[in-house]
């Protein structure tokens, strides 16, 4: 589904992506872990199209998308959530998700009908909100939602575009234990029918959700394997999990 070859991106002297090879098969949940500053978000930004790589190729569903701008990639079925919460704060939760539905429903050069009363948009949006457990909060402004709810809203907006591949950049970031458990529950229910790339610090979540794990250190993938084998890998232990792990 996703095939990355030799991806390089430097910021000055810093090589944030140093020849990354990365493959995601249809239907799998592929986690990406690594210490702070390893270049995980830089990598996700190149996949989503917000950053342009210096070298290398990204193929998605058989097509070279290395040079496509972000909105085109989104319409081809690559959806993302942001590490730092990124919603429309002045719109309600329902409007946020309805906008994502609208984005995948063809062009928006329609000037007359009230979009907020359009069941073709609000119907699917409600459904997704129910799925992530926000249906009772749908008329609350996104800016007034609790942090954990905003994180769920992020995922809901990505889902509402009906993506073929979901890029989740630390969906559990800043969440309390309860909220994390709920998010893990949501992701494991998605996992059966959705291809996911998951960047996450919460190891408990990663080992519960991932089918495969890639370990990124200093812009290089030092290991990519099943969770069991990653746990046993000496190099990974030294670089990331800590000696005692």
């Amino acid at each position: 589904m996703l095939e990355v070859k030799g991806l390089c991106k430097s910021f000055g002297a810093l090589r944030a992506s140093d020849g990354i090879d990365f493959h995601v098969a249809e239907g799998e949940t592929h986690a990406l872990i690594g210490p702070n500053g390893a270049g995980k978000t830089t990598f996700i930004n190149q996949l989503a199209g917000t950053l342009r790589p210096d070298a290398g190729t990204i193929r998605f569903a058989g097509e070279d998308i290395t040079r496509l701008p972000a909105p085109r990639r989104a319409r081809k079925g690559l959806a993302r959530s942001f590490q730092i919460t990124s919603v429309y704060p002045g719109f309600t939760a329902l409007e946020n998700v309805a906008l994502a539905v609208q984005a995948r429903s063809g062009h928006s050069f329609r000037f007359w009908r009230d979009a907020r009363r359009d069941p073709a948009l609000t119907g699917p949006a409600r459904q997704v909100l129910e799925e992530v457990g926000l249906e009772e909060r749908m008329h609350v402004l996104a800016g007034n939602l609790a942090h954990g709810e905003q994180r769920s809203l992020e995922v809901a907006m990505a889902l509402a575009t009906r993506p073929r591949l979901l890029l989740l950049d630390e969906p559990m970031a800043g969440m309390g234990a309860d909220e994390s458990q709920r998010m893990i529950g949501l992701l494991s229910s998605l996992k059966r029918r959705q291809t996911i790339v998951l960047v996450e610090h919460d190891m408990d979540a990663v080992f519960r959700l991932a089918d495969r794990i890639a370990v990124l250190v200093y812009g290089r993938v030092i290991a990519s394997d099943s969770p069991e084998k990653i746990k046993m890998n000496e190099e990974v232990r030294r670089a990331y999990l800590g000696e005692g792990a």
Binding site: R72, A79, E95, L99, A103, S108, R110, F111, A115, L121
Partner: peptide, 27 residues
């Protein structure tokens, strides 16, 4: 009518959060 239509929502969304708009597929 315009600002509450699909067009208006896309326009206002881009003002509210441009990065988010690009990410869901609105140029």
């Amino acid at each position: 009518r315009i600002v509450n239509s699909r067009f208006g929502m896309a326009l206002r969304a881009a003002k509210s959060n441009e990065a988010r708009s690009r990410a869901i597929g609105f140029p």
